[in-house]
C-alpha cells in the first residue's frame, strides 16, 4: 500500500517535470513507428549519404527546427514572430533574383541571410521602437511578405524563377562525409545560439525582459536593444531556413513555400515547454518539439495512412501534449483514475 503511494507521488513529480512529457511523446512516436514499419530503425548508406526513416525525420525537421530556435528566443522576450514564413519566401525570391542577375553564389548566400536580418530589423523596429504588440507588428510582414516575394520575382520579368546553384544546394540537400549538410547547419545554428544565450548574459537579459520589461529596464538592462536583438536572431534563423528550403526546391515560390512554418515553429516551442507568456528559453526542448512535429508527419507517411490525415493527427497530438502540460487537465485525469480505483 505504501509503495503504491510513493510510486504515485513519484509519478506525480515526474509528471510535473518540464521535459518529461515532450520526451515521452517523442519516444512513444518512435516506438509506435518501429512497430508499424519494420525497417524504421534501419540506416543505410546510399550514394555516400546516410539514409533511413530516423535520419529522414531529422533531415526534414531541420528547417522548422532552425526557425523554431529563433522563435524560442523571440518568445522568451514575451514576443512572437508570425512573419517567419514570409521571410523565407522573401529570401527565396532574393536568391532566385540575384542568381538570374548572375551574382556570385557565395555573395548571394550572404544576401539571403542579410535579407533575413533586414526583416528582423523591421520587426524589431516595430516592436522595440514603436512599441507595437509583437503579434500585431509581425502580422504586418506576415500579411505582406509573400506579396513582396512575388514582386521580387517580377524584377527579372516574371520569367521562370527556378535556378541551379551547387553551393546553395550543397547546403540544403548535400552531405559532408555521411551526414546531410543541413543537419550540420542545424547543429551549428543550435550550438551558436546556445553559446549566445547561455554562455553570455544575453539569455538572462532576454528572460528578464520577457518576464518583466519595466523591472529589467530599471535593473539596467536595455530592454529595447534586447528585444531588437531577439527579432534579428529570429530573422536570421528564418533566412537560414529560407536558403535551405529554396535550394531544396530549386525555385522561388513565394505563395506556397514554408506555408504554416510559423505555426509549426510556435508549436515546436510550446510543445517543448515554452510559454507564450515569455520569460524562459528552452533551446534543446524546442528542437525536440520540432522533431515531434516532423516525426508525426513521417509516421503518417510510413503507416500508409493517406497524407490528408497528417493535419488531423498533428492537431490531436498537439492537443494531447497541451492537455498533459495543463495542471487542471492532469488533475482531472488523476481524479478520474483514483475514483475508478476506489
Amino acid at each position: 500500500m505504501s509503495t503504491d503511494i510513493t510510486l504515485s507521488t513519484r509519478l506525480r513529480a515526474l509528471a510535473g517535470y518540464r521535459a518529461t512529457w515532450p520526451l515521452l511523446a517523442l519516444a512513444a512516436i518512435f516506438i509506435v513507428d518501429g512497430f508499424i514499419s519494420p525497417g524504421f530503425y534501419d540506416i543505410r548508406i546510399v550514394e555516400g549519404r546516410l539514409f533511413g526513416s530516423v535520419i529522414d525525420i531529422f533531415y526534414r525537421a531541420m528547417p522548422t527546427a532552425i526557425v523554431a530556435l529563433g522563435m524560442a528566443v523571440v518568445i522568451g522576450t514575451k514576443g512572437i514572430d508570425l512573419s517567419v514564413g514570409s521571410v523565407v519566401a522573401i529570401c527565396g525570391a532574393v536568391i532566385a533574383w540575384r542568381i538570374h542577375e548572375g551574382d556570385s553564389h557565395f555573395v548571394i548566400l550572404f544576401l539571403a541571410l542579410g535579407t533575413g536580418l533586414l526583416c528582423g530589423l523591421w520587426n524589431g523596429f516595430l516592436v522595440a521602437v514603436l512599441n507595437i504588440q509583437p503579434i500585431i507588428a509581425t502580422l504586418i510582414l506576415m500579411v505582406s511578405g509573400r506579396g513582396i516575394g512575388l514582386l521580387v520575382n517580377q524584377f527579372y520579368g516574371g520569367t521562370d524563377p527556378s535556378f541551379e546553384s551547387a553551393l546553395l544546394q550543397g547546403l540544403s540537400v548535400g552531405h559532408i562525409w555521411l551526414i546531410p549538410t543541413r543537419l550540420i547547419v542545424g547543429v551549428g545554428v543550435f550550438i551558436a545560439l546556445w553559446f549566445l544565450i547561455r554562455r553570455t548574459a544575453l539569455g538572462l537579459f532576454i528572460e528578464a525582459v520577457g518576464g518583466n520589461t519595466s523591472a529589467a529596464n530599471l535593473a539596467g538592462v536595455n530592454a529595447r536593444l534586447i528585444i531588437f536583438s531577439a527579432y534579428l536572431i529570429a530573422g536570421l534563423c528564418a533566412g537560414i531556413a529560407g536558403v535551405i528550403l529554396t535550394a531544396d526546391t530549386h525555385t522561388s515560390d513565394p505563395v506556397s513555400v514554408a506555408l504554416y512554418i510559423e505555426l509549426d515553429a510556435i508549436l515546436a516551442v510550446v510543445i517543448g515547454g515554452g510559454s507564450l507568456a515569455g520569460g524562459r528559453i528552452y533551446l534543446g526542448m524546442t528542437v525536440i518539439g520540432a522533431l515531434i512535429i516532423q516525426a508525426l508527419t513521417t509516421s503518417i507517411l510510413i503507416s500508409g495512412l493517406p497524407p490528408e490525415y497528417n493535419l488531423v493527427v498533428k492537431a490531436v497530438v498537439v492537443l494531447f501534449v497541451l492537455l498533459l502540460q495543463s495542471q487542471n487537465a492532469r488533475n482531472a485525469v488523476w481524479g478520474l483514475f483514483s475514483w475508478r480505483k476506489s
Binding site: G211, N212, S214, A215, G220
Partner: peptide, 16 residues
Amino acid sequence: EEGLVGELSIRENIIL
C-alpha cells in the same frame, strides 16, 4: 510591476 522578474530565480534576480 517594476522590481522583480517573478519567474526568474532569487539568484538571477539578485545578480541581474
